[in-house]
Each structure stands twice: as structure tokens, then as C-alpha cells.
């Protein structure tokens, strides 16, 4: 169960980071003019790429690209939907809401529904992982200090999410 959450964590972080990479490359040249373009599919992102923790290094680079960008003041919001990614836990799809180039909301459009265990993992893990992804991205942090965690506590820590995203 714990391992499953870990894997899911890196999957979602990968999804979000890869999506933000694809958005930010064109967005960095014409931020503002692409605002309010409505729903745009994150096409071209192969599901194997999106689900793979093996691309975390690439995703880490993407995040750093994203970190450089700051939202233009008063930028309009837009919604971007990723392609469906086949994960170990079934098909998943992520929808991002952006203000300028900053992710303000992450929504998982599809969840696994092929087993009680998967449901349980989703129900308990996804809101927390979304929060963590947003917290880490918005704060642009390298590491986290907090009350001493045990090795079990580490698995659900923000530091663990950072270690995986940057690995």
C-alpha cells in the first residue's frame, strides 16, 4: 500500500511537471496573448512518457523551467487537459488551471475504478498529492525542514516528494 502511494506520487508529479513543461515552452515567448485560450489538450505527450518515473530527470528540468516563469500581473486563467495516461493504477488524466504560467489548480479527471484497493489509494492519496504538488511548485523550494520524521513518516513527507521529483 505504501509502495503504491509512492509510485502514484511520482506518477502524478510526473504528469503535472510534464504538462507544465509543454505549456511553458510556447508560453514563455507569448505569455498573456495565449491567455484565456480555453481548454487545450496536452497533445503529443505519450502516455508511456507521462506515466514513467524514469523521466523524472526530464520532469525536474521542466519544473525548473516553470520556476523561472512568474505569472504576469492580472493574467487570465486557462485550463489545459492532458492526454490519458495508462498507469499501474489504470487510466488517469490531469487537468490544470493556470493563471499566466502558474498552476493554480490540479484536477484528476479519470481515476481507476477496477478494484477496491485502487479506489482506496486514489481517494486517500490524490487530494494530498495534489496539495503537495501545488505547495512544492508554488514555494519553489529545494528541501523541507520540519519536526523530525521517522523512516515511515518520510514516505508521506514533502521532502520525499521533492526527492522523487528531482531524482
Amino acid at each position: 500500500m505504501r509502495r503504491a502511494i509512492l509510485a502514484l506520487s511520482s506518477t502524478i508529479a510526473g504528469l503535472v511537471l510534464l504538462l507544465s513543461f509543454k505549456i511553458h515552452i510556447p508560453g514563455s515567448t507569448d505569455a498573456g496573448t495565449t491567455a484565456a485560450s480555453g481548454s487545450a489538450a496536452g497533445t503529443g505527450a505519450g502516455s508511456a512518457d507521462m506515466a514513467g518515473a524514469g523521466h523524472a530527470g526530464h520532469a525536474g528540468q521542466a519544473r525548473r523551467e516553470a520556476r523561472k516563469a512568474r505569472p504576469p500581473h492580472g493574467a487570465a486563467t486557462r485550463t489545459v487537459t492532458g492526454t490519458v495516461a495508462d498507469t499501474t493504477y489504470g487510466p488517469m488524466q490531469v487537468q490544470l488551471t493556470l493563471a499566466g504560467q502558474s498552476i493554480t489548480r490540479v484536477k484528476v479527471l479519470q481515476r481507476t475504478d477496477d478494484g477496491a484497493e485502487s479506489d482506496q489509494i486514489d481517494a486517500s492519496a490524490i487530494p494530498k498529492l495534489i496539495n503537495e504538488t501545488l505547495a512544492v511548485q508554488s514555494a519553489r523550494i529545494n528541501a523541507v525542514s520540519g519536526a523530525s520524521y521517522t523512516s515511515a513518516g518520510y514516505r508521506r513527507s514533502l521532502q520525499s516528494a521533492l526527492d522523487q521529483a528531482g531524482a
Binding site: K128, N131, A135, A139, N142, A143, V144, G146, L158
Partner: peptide
């Protein structure tokens, strides 16, 4: 510089401040 998040003791998964 290094940016270190201080974990919120009241809201898990959130940072209280950044040093």
C-alpha cells in the same frame, strides 16, 4: 540561494514559510 520550506505543523503537505 537554497530555498527551504518550513513544514506547517498544522496543515500536512503545506509549508508555513520559506527560508
Amino acid at each position: 540561494p537554497w530555498r527551504i520550506g518550513i513544514a506547517s505543523p498544522l496543515q500536512p503537505g503545506r509549508v508555513a514559510t520559506v527560508v
